[in-house]
Design a protein around this nucleic acid. Sequence first.
DNA 1: GTCTAAACGAGACGGTACGTCTAGTCTTGTT
DNA 2: AACAAGACTAGACGTACCGTCTCGTTTAGAC
Lengths: 206, 206, 206, 206
Amino acid sequence: MESRTSAARTGRPRSVAADAAILAATREALVELGWSKLTLGDVATRAGVAKTTVYRRWAGKNELVVDAVAALFDELELPDRGSLAADIEGVVLQFAAILDRPEAKSGLMAVVAEATRDEALRERIRASIVDRQKRLVVEGRARAAQRGELPPETDPEAASRTADLIFDVVAGAVVHRTLVSAEPVDEDWARRFAAMLFGGLAATGT
Amino acid sequence: MESRTSAARTGRPRSVAADAAILAATREALVELGWSKLTLGDVATRAGVAKTTVYRRWAGKNELVVDAVAALFDELELPDRGSLAADIEGVVLQFAAILDRPEAKSGLMAVVAEATRDEALRERIRASIVDRQKRLVVEGRARAAQRGELPPETDPEAASRTADLIFDVVAGAVVHRTLVSAEPVDEDWARRFAAMLFGGLAATGT
Amino acid sequence: MESRTSAARTGRPRSVAADAAILAATREALVELGWSKLTLGDVATRAGVAKTTVYRRWAGKNELVVDAVAALFDELELPDRGSLAADIEGVVLQFAAILDRPEAKSGLMAVVAEATRDEALRERIRASIVDRQKRLVVEGRARAAQRGELPPETDPEAASRTADLIFDVVAGAVVHRTLVSAEPVDEDWARRFAAMLFGGLAATGT
Amino acid sequence: MESRTSAARTGRPRSVAADAAILAATREALVELGWSKLTLGDVATRAGVAKTTVYRRWAGKNELVVDAVAALFDELELPDRGSLAADIEGVVLQFAAILDRPEAKSGLMAVVAEATRDEALRERIRASIVDRQKRLVVEGRARAAQRGELPPETDPEAASRTADLIFDVVAGAVVHRTLVSAEPVDEDWARRFAAMLFGGLAATGT
DNA sequence: GTCTAAACGAGACGGTACGTCTAGTCTTGTT
DNA sequence: AACAAGACTAGACGTACCGTCTCGTTTAGAC
């Protein structure tokens, strides 16, 4: 969404209701039609808005879908379940629950695919979705160190590299399980995954 | 691609050259245009073939792209590098090398996204791409047990569940690193990932 | 239809049944679909024959339809009803009856339209359909002269020009009434038309 | 062409220039290609317009061609040449001149052929082309009665039937001469035809 | 009784047009 | 200036036929 930082003091102001209506309509259309059959004209109709109003705010389908899906990840947070393994398990289940919703399933992978050829889109995904989750990894690591489950970090550069690795493993495994293997991320799977990850972290002393 | 195993004894036989030309043209178009801008008409032109010839053999863009991309994974094999960690590292690097090619990058995630709404497509992906890789996990596990790195498997049902978990972790992490984080899977990352995974496997006694 | 006058003494002879089956299938398709929706593939299927068999005998849709329609005009003949006016009336009714059949209606005007841009097709129509009718005019004129209704012809060149004129008037009026005005050529219309034509012929002394 | 008499107060109005451009392009294509090779895509290109713009205004090829050809008949009018025979001759020559133009030749018979299976198209032809000519017959008849060449009409019902008959004879003969016989409608033919028709009218007292 | 050459059925082939759909833009009048 | 409405250009969609071709399979007359 464009911000219109300056100017634009005159003329009719943009309808604030329209943004929310369009994003909601987008999610609705994603559920019903999936990404490839979703059209901006249809979204506009569902939102009770003219097509021009959509185009005035988003550059295209990809940008719109990223914003529509990003909102779903707002609810993600790191529970404190007493141990790192349990925390991992909890976050995995939360993440899987979001990913299992059809509007996320359908839209997320599609925009990631588009992003392979569009740096700006990749950046938008990173800012709206990825980074928001990555901070959970950092928080969880810090909490585990506080609890004494893992040694405190000394080299901040190495810590950042490790956080990236953990994030790719967690997010990648859950996404792959859900979308490619198309198997449910249930408590059993989450427990086994968390055990394996925690074991790996402990064994490598990170 | 339809197999026409039986019947079809009569009439002009299908050109055997056309199949290969179409798949090659598809990969070429994926590199140049990406999935969303690839059109079957363009593929047909590149292959020197009429549009109807493409539609006669593939039901649509998704099926065609799956087959075109699947061929890339033919070269995957499990190296024997002497230890499980080294084997994992080797496979990860091979997998990442394939995934880094633009024709795979662009096409694979897109068809996975489409597959979220199409069971038949999901099955095709599983048969053509996923299962071919999953067997590497099983082989690697067996080899590690032979070496004495891991205890031999007793419960085949649990072994299968574990293989699935490992596969989701390996494939998921590499895919996520490559496509979402858009960072290279270099030797360093592969070593750190393999160490973590091996640690987890050893720690959980699987 | 091509004749294969010479050569072709050897090899499998053409099926004689196929010709009739194809023409019948063509008329059937004309009735059901009309000219523009008639396809040679469909005709071949209806005739229980391969597409190649049709193309081996006719150059295209136009030629096939001309032949299929021409057969309908075989039944036209000049009745002797005792007077020229009555003869005209009889021939008009016969002609109209043929023209009212859907296979003629649909096909005839279409090939005439095509013939405006195809001299060979025009010639084929003339030979197969038009000339066969035109001789009725000449016969009727001669019979009327014999009866003393009209003066005997002296100048053969002028007689030919007059026959052409009469033919255009008769055929044109019936075709126009049937296809453009889409009104029935019933006995009343035929009687009024015959009276007018006979009156014109008598008045101009031709 | 659809009229959109009411409503449609909102939205961008249809380009008025497009209508004329499309009809002109249609006539041009008729001349160059004839009816059967004319395609709406080509017409759109010639008119400098997108294909959808054509389809938005006309239901198909037939409707478009009727409208394109109908415009040619606007110039038809009844000359006052002093006598009915001369008037007929004049109108016949005018009509023949229009019919001889390739855009009319090619298109008119084709749509008449199509109209045999399409009542709506038949009505469109009647309204756009046929009725506009038929009124010339009525005018000519009235003028002849005024001059005293023919008796005044008493029974309006019979008069209408006669006008229809005359119209079928005139239009039919000219069309047949031009398109089927493929002979020119020159002054000589027109004079002989007019004489015959006038003779018939006078003889039957209509 | 082979031999042989054309006709046959089937259906794939390269092409072309179809009529529909969507993208993204533009042009009205209205708010 | 944003808005609803809807026409606009551009171009892909998947389908249908065209007329040709390439197979394997009859089928008759010539040898």
